[in-house]
Nucleic acid binder design. Structure first.
Lengths: 328, 328
DNA sequence: ACAGTATTGTCATACGTATGCATACAGCGC
DNA sequence: GCGCTGTATGCATACGTATGACAATACTGT
């Protein structure tokens, strides 16, 4: 039923080995024979089996993108990753990272991929160590893992958040709140640290009841805004650890009849496409997400092909001033 | 370097064949031996090679999800598909459907997947015929292909759009515009037909300058709204072929200072999560996307395992009245 | 104790491709 | 016509797993 290289060989009147060589353009096969083989392959509609090829060469030219399906940030990153990998003759496979790691470990180590891009790795995750132990090349994207032995690509989260802190201070805010991401992610930690640094410099305190910490999703933003504003002395400005959170905050504010930026300033992080929509016009920090994704893909291929060592790339961020911030 | 079943066999003091059987829980291996093998596998950190397994069994337990990366609708569908496949012991692989079909054909036919879910298939696409010819099982999701030999799962697009048409008529609109999706998709065609049927029944015409046709994305909505409203006698209501388009229309309306629904009524289709956000509160038609995705995944697995024939499932839709519609 | 059967494990091979090595053959100089 | 070189192709095998056929062992009843 399936057409194999043996079928092609029979039709072209050569051996299977010659078919393999001919189709790869091996110079040891005459142009004449190559042509004949190619025609036979075409006629039969031959498609080389990735399984056979992979088994033989111990490489699949496939790369796993490991992400939490719920984290919508990666949707924007798939195109640049896909295209960069394509250019380098690699394919992308999406693996969902769920709570139970067991299946994921296996899927990464079953030899069906040559490497992985980890996008949503938690600092506490054992995965990077496991992969390193098994010599499966991988890079971090938008994360820095607890494991330092792998290349990473990330935005300058510390500087970016610090810039937001400085902005809020400059605008005269003193009661400032923050909706943070998970503390066991590098972005969660770094964005917190940068922001705190700015407030510290201005001698502005960040009491516990002005800190809300949860996931990187819209829902968290909704809850965060509501919770923070319910306090005795509610903040006049809220920094959200990423744009999805910020948009959730804006949504809840609208529902509660809270004016932004009239009643409260809201600032996000990442500058996803949606942030620029007129419905939001979110003031935020731009991470060069496309460039980062492309770089990560490139680094991974280099790593797989043994061309580089460990390298940590940090991309500069840029404050994007839109319409959700105002003086205190 | 890589741990194989031979290594496990050596350590457990049995043959490779026994390892294979033991790990699959074959009754022909004593519980005692199974335990010993399992321990050895554990000790060595053995992970079965998908390549070897696939080559031997001619099945990979992997299913391709074929989608255009730009079509954000599928992001919402990945979780139900992923989970349903997981339950049935299958894995999901995302393949980007780009303009050049060549690479895609190969990736589907290289025996690295057992089947495919086609989510963005164009009516003109040769892919379904190609897959059918090669006996690669597949199902259509949210589409009906020109090829009728494969199962399909879709919403009742005709009835849904007709309901929107009826609604607009009931609200007293007579100058009605529409922003349609590509005419070589079944959704594009069916949603157009249903809407036209409703207008026909009410003797309301749909002149060419009130029809804008483009892709299923936010950008198309922006352009569509602007174009339609620029006409001499602009429409007082606009039906958008899906929610992304509708949101694009809302965005552009905001930028242009056009009030919705004060100046113009806007209705979408699908009821994606975002449609309910307070920034939009979009009146739309709900497709049971989750249930559809789950069903498609289930059907595909049944098809792969030879349990069913061809079956076309159509899910009922439901009008969701929010805040973007008003009387003429 | 023996034949007969059930149980447990091994052997050998297939899956489809890639590749080191061997071979056949053409061309060449003498 | 002989041996030599070099090139085009074929042969054989490896990759890791699964499985049908078979062998070895234990167990049963008489």
């Amino acid at each position: 039923m399936t057409v194999t290289s043996h079928d092609v060989a029979r039709l072209a009147g050569v051996s299977q080995a010659t078919v393999s060589r001919a189709l790869r353009g091996d110079a040891r096969v005459t142009a004449d024979t190559q042509e004949r083989v190619r025609e036979a392959a075409q006629a039969l509609g031959y498609v080389r089996s990735e399984l056979g090829r992979g088994l033989s060469t111990r490489s699949t030219h496939r790369v796993a993108l490991v992400a939490e399906l719920e984290n919508t940030l990666y949707h924007q990153l798939m195109r640049p990753i896909h295209d960069e990998l394509g250019k380098r003759d690699y394919r992308m496979v999406l693996l969902a990272e769920d709570s139970d790691d067991a299946g994921l470990h296996e899927r990464l180590l079953d030899r069906s991929v040559d490497g992985a891009i980890l996008m949503t790795s938690r600092l506490s995750s054992a995965l990077p160590f496991e992969l390193a132990r098994r010599n499966l090349p991988f890079v971090f994207l938008n994360r820095v893992g607890a494991f330092a032995g792998a290349p990473s690509v990330s935005a300058d989260n510390f500087a970016g958040s610090r810039a937001v802190g400085d902005l809020l201070v400059r605008l005269g805010h003193t009661r400032i709140g923050v909706i943070l991401g998970p503390s066991d992610t590098s972005t969660g930690r770094d964005r917190e640290a940068g922001f705190r640094a700015a407030l510290d410099d201005a001698d502005i305190s960040l009491p516990r009841n002005r800190v809300f910490r949860r996931e990187y999703d819209e829902e968290s933003g909704r809850m965060g805004l509501e919770t923070l504003l319910a306090a005795n002395k509610p903040p006049t400005a809220i920094f959200c650890a990423n744009d999805f959170v910020a948009i959730g905050a804006l949504n809840r504010a609208t529902e509660l009849g809270v004016a932004v930026p009239g009643d409260v300033t809201v600032v996000g992080f990442d500058d996803i496409d949606m942030a620029a929509w007129p419905a939001f016009r979110l003031t935020t920090v731009r991470s060069p997400l496309m460039a980062m994704a492309e770089r990560a893909a490139g680094l991974l291929v280099d790593l797989i092909e043994g061309k580089i060592g460990t390298e940590h790339d940090i991309f500069a961020t840029e404050l994007v001033l839109r319409s959700t911030h105002a003086p205190a």
